[in-house]
Write a protein that binds this DNA or RNA. Structure first.
Length: 1038
RNA sequence: GCCCGGGUGGCGGAAUUGGUAGACGCGCUGGACUUAAAAUCCAGUGGCCUUUGGGUCGUGCGGGUUCAAGUCCCGCCCCGGGUACCA
């Protein structure tokens, strides 16, 4: 009986569905295990082979954990809001929900065909009102919360109001915008509106004027991680900076906790490092500088207060509020011009142009508090308004940017740090600054001689004592802009009364996305929701017209899976306390600074509210590598070049190379060949071109008295003899000047040359060819001819009777014709083969090219595996006798390794182990029941369909999914004898089999008395023998 | 520039703690079966040399530690990713 995967796979997929095999139910008697994939955005193109890589890995792990007795939660859903559906809606008028749900259906169908063990009963879709009700609900909680720096926790805004009423804001250490102090009485005296405005500075979801990444083409604001090099990540449209009123989430409040949390989770170092860099904590100090002849003081942030004696100038950001105030009269004009220029530079200009140094002197001087030195104050765009205080003290001796600036504008450089063991040097001769913190202070008053690290601490204390500075920590992380001027997103549960935003009552949720006539902004430039009829509350107050960004719905979906149908609360306490957190999260690392940071933040916030019981959402995270495309190429011959090449080769062959000049130039004219002896020009062109140009050639010949042979391309390519004949005639015939007649018009057919044909590069260009027509790099010529009408009559230059294609690794994309769609592979090889092959390709975390060439091997393996159960070929049959010693060794070794490999996510080596095991069993023609049963269970997580089928054939009912993973019988792991590799001076020479369990001494004796060893020792002096029992023997000789 | 990864046959990759480099698979070569093909099976397959015993070189390059290095240390080269005036 043949292995008929189509029927088997259909049968078991149906079985799992009907029996709800993977439906998870909270069961306190069993340990839980939560395996999650990053849910996909359902794009119109469907899944390609790259998508399932992570899903297969997590599915194997989920199934494995089930065999290991865990209660496994393995849900799937859809991140449904996204720009493509909305762009499509704008173009076609189709509601994005229609497109989205259609795509979701297609995704689910594709996923089911691969045999994933998803619990579809728990599916969530972010654009479903039942789901986004809780996204909106969370927003309301954020709006109603503030972050207490003292407790490092979010608290209800009411506790802040209570505090204001008692003592004003003086004693409050909150994560907030800059706000001047007020007393309790002042607070009470404020109008309701004023109070709301004050509170807005504290809310975790707050409205604020911010510089945003505005993409005019898309008509919306983008998050920092959605912008790449000044262009939108989706669509590649230009992005500009723009000041807009936006909703922001105060993620910065959680910066320290987000940083600390990284130490507690099992993520890859590179991913943690990316988040650390993105959060960008730096420790330093603030320093207050007074301005000469002015009341103004400038506060700077520096990580190097030790270098204060080296501060030779100051720089303000162009946006700094003091710029106008301190600029001296004579400098006003140039400063204004510079500030205007700097502010209006687009983000792209700024990025493209980081190397050029610009700035202007304000005319004002600051006083360096350590030595009262007068230092000039400049304005320059290398200082950013949004970081620190938007002003710096410049220490050109020890900061490379300051150094470059100082050199450019001729500002003084002072050395204040010297590398240990080196002498101070005149900075005038320096080529770069000394930025390292490794060194000793010089020229620095009372800290001279100190180590840099001590000096920093000393200076911070000194500044604090003097009241002109204090130790401070700055973060690079910015608040997350939370508004989008788009239709396809969650509406904010917010309305405006007298211009003040209020949140809707929780009982009015969800606020459903309204219908609009068009998915475009209004003429007034308002977002599409402004088009909706009656977009106001029952009381008539206008609703917010922005919508939430993509990361809103994905930030806490993993929590909703725990209790997805609960309409009373986000999720029940019981469900959350059972499932707690995600044990294994699998997804791409492109989400490092987006989703993975935002969801950690949301989770921490929900943790503070007492909703989530774990502080970190994703305990272990695996980034699956990307699957790159393997493009195939055919080489299209440039016929004219090829004809010239052929003729030239011919000329070389007959030994006339010296008589001809190639690419002959006569004034402006260029010809292919020229023979001096015969005063003959040869020009190769298509017949049509020759006919068109004939008269011009004739004119030219008349004036130069040369002979001209015009050869049509087709003649050269099709009938080589003609060339010789014609050329010979032309040389001999002294009468005729232009020779071009009697040629039959021949059609030029597209010609393709195989990859390894000599000189291919000289006359062909590579062209992407669809990978479906290429097998093991051999082109299916007939399929190729049918591919495009213009290739119908294509001809080929073969090598060894085949057309060999070239290949290259590129991104998988439609335009490169290298997209591999899983459905085709499933049809041809089956889902089990696809699953196994994707795992076999290499480590999950590594990016690798998709290459169908190897899939045959896995397919072969399954047939071999299947045949173990059908010894005669026809009938299923297993041997019920107890397994032999040999069989026990094979199977126990295998399941031991497989179990360990799965636990360390080394799926590729587990697949190898299956292969080795099946090969070994095949060799001894084993079909022992006990052995087969163990093998089937251990393979069931990789190839669930075939294993279910065989499990049933073995006489079991109820499916294999919850069957316990086989125990390893350790007694069979021990080998009776060890093949000891014997090496001399570290080089392995031969092996000696010795019984296992010998001690060092016995091994040494056995080895030394061996004949082969003696041969190696002849004439040499034995220095030492190293014995590692069970491993190796090394003999040192001289 | 800075910060992470990585570099092993023709290809994907294995070598888990310093202990037989190249498991497993693809591809390729030869053979069996077949009218033939497919499928299947068997043998071989890192380079060089070879008297067919084997020898010798070999994990990006150069050095080092060690009885022993793909693995550890120092210096460099190349590739991939992140980030970019973050004071």
């Amino acid at each position: 009986m043949n292995y008929c995967f189509t029927d088997i796979e259909k049968k078991w997929q149906q079985y799992w569905k009907e029996n709800k095999t993977f439906s998870a139910v909270e069961d306190p008697s069993k340990p839980k295990y939560y395996v999650l994939d990053m849910f996909p955005y359902p794009s119109g193109a469907g899944l390609h082979v790259g998508h399932p890589l992570g899903y297969i890995a997590s599915d194997i792990y989920a199934r494995f954990k089930r065999h290991k007795g865990f209660n496994v939660l393995h849900p799937m859903g859809f991140d449904a809001y996204g720009l493509p559906a909305e762009q499509y809606a704008i173009q076609t008028g189709t509601h994005p929900a229609i497109t989205t749900y259609k795509n979701i259906d297609r995704y689910k169908e594709q996923m089911d065909k691969i045999g994933f063990s998803f619990d579809w009963d728990r599916e969530v879709v972010t654009c479903d009102p039942k789901y986004y009700k809780w996204t909106q609900w969370t927003f309301i909680q954020l709006f109603n919360s503030w972050f207490n720096n003292e407790t490092q926790k979010a608290e209800n805004i009411q506790s802040l109001i209570d505090a204001f009423e008692k003592e004003g804001n003086a004693g409050i250490d909150a994560a907030c915008d800059e706000i001047s102090p007020f007393t309790a009485d002042e607070w009470k005296a404020m109008s309701k509106k004023e109070q709301q405005e004050v509170l807005m500075n504290y809310r975790l979801a707050h409205l604020s004027d911010t510089m945003v990444n505005w993409c005019p083409e898309l008509g919306t604001v983008l998050a920092n991680d959605e912008v790449k090099d000044g262009y939108s990540e989706r669509g590649g449209h230009p992005v500009e900076r723009k000041l807009m009123k936006q909703w922001l989430l105060r993620i910065t409040a959680y910066a320290q906790r987000l940083l600390d949390g990284l130490d507690t989770i099992n993520w890859s170092d590179s991913l943690k490092e990316i988040q650390r860099n993105w959060i960008g904590r730096s420790e330093g100090s603030s320093v207050l500088f007074s301005v000469e002849n002015s009341e103004n003081k400038i506060e700077v942030f520096t990580t190097r207060p030790d270098t204060l004696w080296g501060a030779t100038y100051m720089v303000l950001a162009p946006e700094h509020e003091l710029v106008a105030g301190i600029t001296t009269k004579d400098r006003v004009e140039s400063i204004e011009r510079y500030v205007h220029w700097a502010k209006n530079r687009s983000e792209r200009d700024r990025i493209a142009d980081v190397k050029s140094i610009t700035g202007e002197f304000t005319g004002a001087f600051a006083i360096n508090p350590v030595n009262n030195a007068r230092i000039p104050i400049w304005v320059a765009d290398y200082v950013l308004a949004g970081y620190g205080t938007g002003a710096i003290m410049a220490v050109p001796g020890h900061d490379s940017r300051d150094f470059a600036f100082a050199r450019h504008f001729g500002l003084p450089v002072i050395q204040v740090v010297v590398k240990k063991g080196e002498e101070p040097a005149d900075p005038a001769g320096w080529e770069e600054s000394y930025d390292s913190k490794d060194g000793l202070m010089i020229n620095s008053g009372f800290i001279t001689g100190m180590e840099v690290k001590t000096a920093i601490q000393t200076m911070i204390s000194w500044l604090e004592e003097k009241g002109i500075g204090q130790g401070k920590i700055n973060f690079r992380l910015r608040d997350a802009i939370f508004s989008r001027q788009r239709y396809w997103g969650e509406p904010f549960p917010v309305y405006y009364k007298n211009g003040i935003p209020y949140t809707l009552d929780e009982k009015d949720l969800p606020l459903e996305l309204p219908e609009v006539d068009k998915y475009l902004p209004t003429e007034a430039g308002e977002p599409p929701l402004a088009r909706a009829k009656n977009w106001k509350t029952k009381e008539g107050y206008p609703l917010e017209t922005g919508t939430m960004p993509g990361f809103a719905g994905s930030s806490a979906y993993y929590l909703r899976y725990m209790d997805p149908h609960n309409d009373k609360e986000y999720f029940s306490k019981e469900a959350n306390e059972y499932w707690r957190d995600v044990d294994l999260y699998v997804g791409g690392d492109e989400h490092a600074t987006g989703h993975l940071l935002y969801s950690r933040f949301w989770n921490k916030f929900l943790f503070d509210l007492g909703l989530a019981c774990e502080d970190e959402p994703f305990k272990k995270l695996i980034n699956q590598g990307k699957i790159q495309g393997r493009s195939s190429f055919v080489y299209r011959v440039n016929l004219e070049k090829y004809a010239e090449y052929l003729l030239w080769e011919h000329i070389k062959k007959i030994g006339s190379k010296d008589k001809f000049i190639r690419n002959y130039r006569d004034g402006n004219r260029k010809f292919d060949f020229y023979n001096k002896e015969a005063n003959l020009i040869i020009e190769i062109k298509s017949q049509a071109k020759l006919e068109k140009l004939e008269s011009h050639y004739k004119k030219y010949i008349k004036t130069t008295n040369k002979k001209l042979l015009l050869l049509p391309i087709a003649d050269i390519i099709n009938i080589n003899d003609t060339i010789i004949e014609e050329t010979q005639k032309a040389i001999e015939d002294s009468q005729k000047q232009v020779i071009f007649d009697n040629h039959k018009v021949r059609e030029l057919k597209p010609l393709f040359v195989s990859k390894n044909i000599k000189d291919r590069k000289l006359f062909s260009t590579p062209l992407h060819v669809d990978i479906s027509m290429v097998h093991n790099d051999v082109l299916d010529v007939e399929a190729f001819k049918k591919w495009r009408p213009e290739y119908k009559n294509a001809e080929f230059i073969f090598e060894e009777g085949k057309y060999i294609c070239g290949w290259e690794i590129e991104k998988m994309s439609k335009s490169k014709h290298n997209v591999q769609n899983p459905d085709e592979l499933i049809e041809k090889y089956g889902a089990d083969t696809l699953r196994m092959y994707e795992m076999f390709l290499g480590p999950v975390e590594q990016s690798k090219p998709w290459d169908t060439n190897g899939i045959e091997g896995v397919s072969r393996f399954f047939r071999k595996f299947w045949r173990l159960f059908f010894p005669g070929g026809e009938h299923f049959s297993v041997n019920d006798a107890p397994p032999s010693e040999k069989e026990q060794t094979i199977i126990n070794k295998a399941i031991d390794k497989i179990g360990k490999d799965i636990e360390r996510f080394s799926f590729n080596t587990a697949v190898s182990t299956f292969m080795i095991c099946v090969n070994e069993l095949n060799e001894i023609k084993s079909n022992n029941r006990e052995v087969m049963e163990k093998l089937v269970i251990s393979m069931a997580s990789f190839a669930p369909h075939i294993c279910e089928e065989l499990w049933e054939k073995l006489g079991h009912k109820g499916g294999i999914s919850n069957t316990a993973f086989p125990q390893v019988d350790k007694q069979y792991l021990r080998e009776e004898s060890v093949e000891y590799p014997i090496s001399f001076n570290g080089k392995m020479r031969f092996k000696i089999p010795l019984p296992a369990g010998l001690d060092k001494k016995a091994i040494e004796e056995e080895v030394l008395k061996n004949e082969k060893t003696q041969k190696w020792l002849e004439g040499k002096k034995l220095i030492k023998t190293i014995v590692v029992p069970g491993k190796i023997v090394n003999i040192v000789i001289r």
